[in-house]
Design a protein around this nucleic acid. Structure first.
Length: 398
RNA sequence: GCGCCGAUCGCAUAGUGGCAAUUGCAGCGGGCUGUAAACUCGCCGACCUAUGGUCUACGGGGGUUCGAGUCCCUCUCGGCGCACCA
């Protein structure tokens, strides 16, 4: 495949959602040169699914692919065992090999939702890191200065505050850096929280008299709550594996202030169109409308346009018009069985005390009769029940 | 090895010997509507014969006390400092 050097496309790659481009002019020159570049993106299998925050970098990687460059996807099966200390105030627990294997299992499958996976060079960093003899690690770590490690970044803060820093944590940036050496990266991309690690790669390559990689980092995508970065452990993430409906719903639930950022980072909408939307929002247009467009865009990227349309209909029926959704889970109830017991068995409520609270708050309704349940000892009758805003269950009594 | 500090409900935090325990985040519910947003009010250990009652909970074990998250002893884990060694 020939390398596309269209300056317009290159310009968008270099700017859209980009926080740091180091060195910008070198990047541009490389991309314009027509040379096939090796673009590295590393991801640690620390959780079992990828979310649209990962999608930001993966989509950028795809953009490079579309120009004809080589995407090098590093699965950090080795680094995951140590745990990236970035942004953590505490040392991260070391994951077991077993956990990592489970997590790795369908990373590739998920990544292929975005990447042209046949053309991706997928590599596992245990391949080289596992074999590195101590003498070599000793030599490599000699090339990185502790002063640098402690300057300004998270290690620095922890050091100043007198918090524990384990020696092994210093190896994380070093390992990530060594990955770059091993795969001969021309460019490494990642979230802006990875800047220090990626810079260490650039640094190490220089010390080893290699052409140093250039760097692109992207703004970190906030999760649905709007404050914290999207992450599985915070439960504020939109997974690439989410089914169309819940993906749609989660996008609808993002904080209004994130709409433009999501458009920029998570969709292919043209910049001009995004600016148009932004203008309308500033003019007081209902953010809901922008979010519907956003949700449809995002869902169709991962599930196709038809599923996206269906998800939209489903959402509007359920939440805008408050209709009863289709596909409500159905259970059969035994005679005299209590409603609370059924809900508990179905994991819809967490305890009978929980049920008592919900009843007190008027959250349980029997839909056909439009009747609020007020009795704790209500026995299960046939009907559709709604618990809160989005928990539904259909009961068939025998 | 010595010394100091710490361990509380998912996370983070408060806690004079009367505590199912403060506050923030997250979560859940009601209201409102623009939606699973924002705002607002409320909830947020379990169980029951349920405007009350019982049980279980502040790292583990023991003790003092009418009563212990709070005091004492001990163990475990973690952090920091010092010493030692190079």
């Amino acid at each position: 495949m020939k390398i596309n050097t269209d300056p317009k496309i290159i310009d968008e790659i270099l700017t859209r959602g980009v926080e740091n481009a180091i060195v910008l002019e070198s990047l541009r020159a490389k991309l314009l040169s027509g040379k096939r570049l090796r673009v590295k993106f590393g991801i640690d299998p620390t959780s079992s699914d990828l979310h649209i925050g990962h999608g930001v970098a993966l989509r950028k990687l795809r953009a490079f692919q579309d120009l004809g460059h080589t995407a090098v996807l590093i699965i950090g099966d080795f680094t995951a065992m140590i745990g990236d200390p970035t942004g953590k105030s505490k040392t991260r627990p070391i994951l077991s090999e077993k956990d990592i294997k489970i997590n790795m299992k369908d990373y590739i499958k998920q990544a292929s939702l975005i990447l042209d996976i046949k053309k991706v060079e997928v590599v596992y960093n245990s391949k080289w890191l596992k074999k590195l003899p101590f003498s070599e690690i000793y030599r490599l770590s000699g090339l990185i200065s502790v002063n640098q490690m402690l300057q300004g970044n998270y290690f620095g803060n922890r050091f100043k505050e007198g918090q524990h820093i384990s020696m092994h944590e210093f190896f994380y940036p070093l390992m990530q850096a060594y990955d770059s050496v091993e795969v001969k990266a021309d460019i490494e991309i990642g979230g802006s929280d990875q800047l220090f690690n990626i810079l260490t790669g650039r640094n190490l390559m220089e010390k080893l008299k290699l052409e140093p990689q250039d760097i692109m980092t992207f703004s970190i995508l906030e999760g649905t709550g709007g404050k914290e970065k999207m992450s599985k452990s915070l439960g504020n993430y939109i997974s690439l594996k989410d089914d169309p409906s819940s993906m749609f719903g989660k996008v609808m639930s993002i904080n209004d202030s994130l709409i433009i950022k999501y458009f920029t980072l998570c969709t292919n909408k043209k910049i001009i169109e995004i600016e148009e939307i932004e203008k309308k929002l500033n003019d007081g247009e209902n953010p809901r409308n922008a979010k519907v467009v956003l949700a449809e865009e995002i869902v169709s990227l991962y599930h196709g346009i038809n599923s996206a349309k269906k998800a939209k209909e489903h959402f509007e029926a359920t939440f805008s018009k408050k209709e009863i959704p289709e596909n409500i889970p159905e259970v059969t109830a035994l005679a005299n069985e209590l409603l609370s017991e059924i809900l508990l068995k179905q994991n819809i409520i967490s305890s009978k005390s929980d049920f008592a609270r919900l009843i007190k708050e008027g959250a349980v309704t029997e839909l056909e009769g439009g009747r609020k349940i007020t009795d704790l000892k209500e026995s299960a009758k046939s009907g559709t029940y709604k618990i809160g805003k989005h928990r539904f269950i259909k009961i068939v009594a025998r």
